[in-house]
Write a protein that binds this DNA or RNA. Structure first.
Length: 322
DNA sequence: CGGCTTTGACCAGCGC
DNA sequence: GCGCTGGTCAAAGCCG
């Protein structure tokens, strides 16, 4: 299936049950209800997307197909993460056999051992090899993955501006997809957050962005006071410019990692796009301070409410769910 | 000149 | 064991 391009990232989400609804995915593991899935909002305190979904569903243009995916029931919600907590707690690396890269710092523990074991004689080659092993090695099968969450965005631009600065460090062709996958790393020195961006082969107008890791620094845009006054936090990671937007969002539940993604349809100036996303429990650890500071805002007016408000402001061409 | 992208190569994990 | 695939590195080139 075409979605295999990122099936490793969002296992079971596109497993088929929700295919018809295009863009509207919410796979609920057997034995769990939709509200169960939404329930872990409580672990993060304050309002969340789930609040909106639960209490103001009519205000949110989100379609939910509660297809059942017999996969792995989601693990119990993690304890409330501190803002500085490594969001690995979110993921359950056990059953997902996909090759998820580990963060570079995860390699550090392997380095010494690896260097000790290295027996190559060619110095130059060895040095180069060592460096690569040092950084690319993924050795410990038990090493935990960085928390990840993905979202889909209907946009012409591949790399959405989410307020952080990213450096592209790789691009790979993706099997069964004509579109390459790009790899970005947060340029902040102490921040190991990565993201992958790829265009859906099934729907070329959709860009799938997967974040991995937790930012440990303020968003450069916000810290520079570059926010437009009209901007609203949807998630601390980025702001929604309240102009130029029309969008339709659909949650996409990543049940193995307890992360949430949505499909967001945007019709805006491609040159000034913002990404949108929003993972529940990830949000606080991934983008801690803004979320917390905007908690009340989110409850009343933030998040999706803002997202959909544009639909009212500008006639929303009932976009067909994909 | 610094920061970023491109791109070929390398490595690890996984399935057969 | 081998091949495939995903993820990463790092040199080279580009750009403002």
């Amino acid at each position: 299936m075409a979605n295999s391009a990122f099936s490793d990232q969002i296992p079971s989400v596109y497993g088929g049950g929700s295919g018809g609804g295009g863009g509207s995915f919410l796979d609920i593991p057997q034995g769990y209800s939709y509200m169960d899935m939404l329930g872990f909002q409580d672990y993060y305190g304050g309002a969340s997307l789930f609040d909106l979904l639960q209490h103001h569903p009519s205000n949110i243009n989100i379609n939910i197909n509660s297809s059942v995916v017999v996969d792995h029931p989601p693990p119990p919600p993690p304890p409330p993460p501190e803002t500085t907590t490594n969001s690995e707690v979110v993921n359950t690396p056990t059953t997902n056999s996909s090759s998820i890269s580990s963060s570079s710092n995860e390699h550090l523990n392997d380095v010494d051992q690896e260097n000790n074991n290295n027996t190559r004689s060619d110095d130059d080659h060895q040095q180069k090899t060592d460096n690569k092993q040092l950084k690319a090695k993924k050795k410990n099968p038990k090493k935990e993955r960085e928390a990840r969450f993905a979202f889909m965005t209907k946009t012409e631009v591949d790399h959405l501006d989410d307020g952080y600065r990213w450096r592209k460090y790789g691009q790979k062709a993706v099997k069964n997809s004509p579109f390459p996958r790009s790899y970005y790393r947060c340029t902040s020195a102490s921040c190991g957050v990565k993201k992958r961006v790829e265009r859906s082969s099934e729907d070329p107008s959709t860009v799938v962005t997967t974040y991995e890791g937790t930012h440990k620094h303020p968003c450069p845009i916000t810290s520079r006071g570059m926010l437009p006054e009209t901007a609203t936090y949807i998630n601390p990671s980025f702001l929604l410019p309240q102009l130029h937007y029309q969008q339709q969002s659909s949650p996409l539940f990543h049940n193995q990692t307890n992360s949430l993604s949505f499909t967001t349809t945007t019709t805006m100036n491609p040159s000034s796009s913002y990404s949108h996303n929003y993972d529940l429990h990830e949000a606080r650890s991934f983008f801690p301070s803004p979320l917390e500071s905007s908690s009340s805002l989110m409850r009343d007016h933030g998040l999706l409410q803002d997202m959909v408000s544009f639909q009212g402001g500008k006639e929303e061409p009932k976009e067909e769910p994909r």
